[in-house]
Design a protein around this nucleic acid. Structure first.
Lengths: 138, 138
DNA sequence: AAAATAAATGCACTTCCGTTGCATGGGCAT
DNA sequence: ATGCCCATGCAACGGAAGTGCATTTATTTT
């Protein structure tokens, strides 16, 4: 089992104390987190540091950014062997209108879609919205 | 052929001068527009009025809001017989990374996706990103 | 037609989030 | 120990969404 430390190294991110904390916090969460979520989790950390941490995580393929339509960016860890590539790695997301949580549906990859001549697809964002499993049973 | 005036009436939106202008401007555009786009098109109009115009248009099913991942809300006219319902009306959108324009792919409806037990899907947002037909040929 | 009511508009202001510039600090290499 | 690079922290900015309230415009009632 690879340690968080080693994983960050492998991805080309210097594993500082703060970065490790953020990484572990993301790993522990089953939902996508906003910058503010993370900020609240570590009262001592500066917003900018966290912002830049997420930015470098994203650039180095540690996390992927999720746009769930709330207008606020969320982040979730990439899967172990992820390259953030279309139809291979990119998966659907589900945003619950009630609890406002967004989860990765990692089992559901983005389906292939045929577009008109001339359109070159490089990336995709698919978000389903409604009630999540926890909220629909209430 | 129904006039813009009549259409707004039919949708339950009182057709003021400003609203008609906004409606026609949206109708003329082949791309989704931001509030700022519209603001720039009508120098005399107040931002708030336009904001609320779009809000009521959306509520009454005149336009649909598009979240293309840029973080800025865009708007486009609904199709004539649209009820903004999943798998019937909701279509894909394409956002061009070069020209930053977002177009409706009205021919491409959102495909059905089977989710795990408990998830109730009510809405969906699918945005493909890459190069549009105009930008890819350059 | 005038008065009363309701709706739309315009202005000012706030909030929230993302982002950048710059100064400081800490760790690593020479 | 010195210098350098990178990470961090503080302050501030900017864009966009949204709200409150006063004013104007339109519609309904008398």
């Amino acid at each position: 089992m690879i340690t968080s430390d080693e994983l960050l190294e492998k991805k080309g991110v210097r594993p500082t104390a703060m970065r490790l904390l953020v990484y572990k916090y993301l790993a522990k969460s089953h939902v996508a987190l906003t910058l503010t979520d993370i900020e609240n989790a570590f009262a001592k950390a500066d917003r900018t540091t966290l912002f830049r941490t997420l930015k470098i995580f994203e650039k180095k393929g540690v996390v992927h950014q999720i746009d769930d339509g709330t207008g606020i960016k969320k982040y979730a860890l990439c899967e172990p062997d992820c390259n953030c590539e279309l139809e291979q790695d990119l998966h659907l997301h589900f945003h619950c209108a009630r609890c406002n949580e967004t989860v990765c549906l990692t089992e559901h990859k983005i389906p292939h879609i045929n577009l008109p001549e001339g359109f070159v697809v490089e990336d995709a964002n698919v978000v389903l919205k409604g009630l999540c499993d926890k909220c629909s049973e209430k």
